[in-house]
């Protein structure tokens, strides 16, 4: 596990700002499975250049909502646009819970997957940028390794580098750190917060502390059909220290709200 902090992080993120991260407006989103309504007439705004965290009980439709914004949800209603109503095609990068690394490609090959899939000819400039991103996530020297040789944390670092390689102003993350151990998760949260600064980020998570460390605003999604709670906005910029008493107080509040949401969900389960 490479633990040393990658150099020059704060200055090394021109892509997000340069691209002018848009706000995202999701209007009248709806999703049904047969007779069950997961959510309907749901509105969500992701503020430009900020990180929004989405918390909620399992099965409430958080991932579906994220996939809807990513343009991956089939059979769902609603469309995500930027603040001017323009389409988001080509402006979104997606980081899933599984790292989704291709086992037959090297670390470098995986980071270069996007350009390759779009048919961009390989160039020294592209390779250099990929190398630079691999160094930024702390994996310099591992470019030629296959994913099977990496730990879970390293693999998710590669996935992060691959996401950054896309230089998209919007990044959607679906529980990207949930499969990692506590220390690794903590390190990756810091890394992600720094590298994704200035982009419009949606982070779906189960972990209230993760939301509190990374989120500019935190929304809880709960109920049937699912509703979004008013946003919780922690003071101070992310990434925040998990041992800060103010953060721990907010965590207690979030846990209470989540508990209420969970109880509502359980009632629904026993009904159906």
């Amino acid at each position: 596990m490479g633990t040393d902090a990658p150099p020059g992080l704060d200055s090394a993120n021109p892509d997000g700002q340069a691209a002018g991260a848009p706000a995202i407006h999701l209007h009248a989103a709806g999703l049904r499975y047969g007779a069950a309504t997961v959510f309907e007439a749901l509105d969500l705004v992701l503020p430009a250049g900020r990180t929004t965290c989405l918390l909620g009980p399992s099965g409430v439709g958080k991932t579906s909502l994220l996939r809807l914004i990513a343009g991956l949800a089939h059979g769902a209603e609603g469309r995500a646009t930027d603040q001017t109503g323009g389409a988001l095609d080509g402006r979104i990068a997606y980081l899933a819970q599984q790292d989704l690394l291709l086992p037959w490609l090297s670390v470098l090959g995986n980071v270069l997957l996007g350009p390759d899939l779009r048919g961009e000819p390989p160039s020294p400039a592209l390779a250099a940028r990929a190398q630079d991103l691999i160094a930024q996530v702390g994996l310099a020297g591992r470019e030629a390794d296959r994913p099977a040789r990496l730990s879970g944390g390293m693999r998710q670092r590669v996935a992060l580098a691959r996401t950054l390689m896309e230089s998209r102003p919007v990044v959607l993350m679906d529980e990207p750190f949930s499969a990692l151990d506590a220390i690794t998760r903590y390190q990756l949260q810091d890394l992600a917060a720094r590298l994704l600064r200035g982009r419009t980020v949606l982070l779906v998570t189960h972990d209230p502390l993760e939301a509190l460390r990374l989120g500019d605003s935190i929304r809880i999604m709960a109920g049937v059909p699912a509703r979004l709670d008013h946003a919780l906005r922690p003071p101070s910029p992310p990434p925040r220290d998990a041992t800060d008493p103010a953060i721990l107080r907010l965590q207690a509040e979030l846990l209470k709200r989540l508990g209420t949401a969970q109880a509502a969900g359980n009632t629904r389960d026993s009904r159906s």
């Binding site: 996939r67 990513a70 095609d89 997606y94 899933a96 989704l100 390759d116 779009r118």
Partner: peptide, 29 residues
């Protein structure tokens, strides 16, 4: 093919032919 890989290819703007060649065929080997 692992659906997550295809989702990834879609968000990356991969062409169907390249997705077949770079992801689906190696995954089917």
């Amino acid at each position: 093919t692992e659906p997550g890989w295809l989702d990834l290819a879609q968000t990356m703007g991969g062409t169907p032919l390249r997705t077949l060649w770079r992801i689906r065929i190696p995954a089917a080997l």
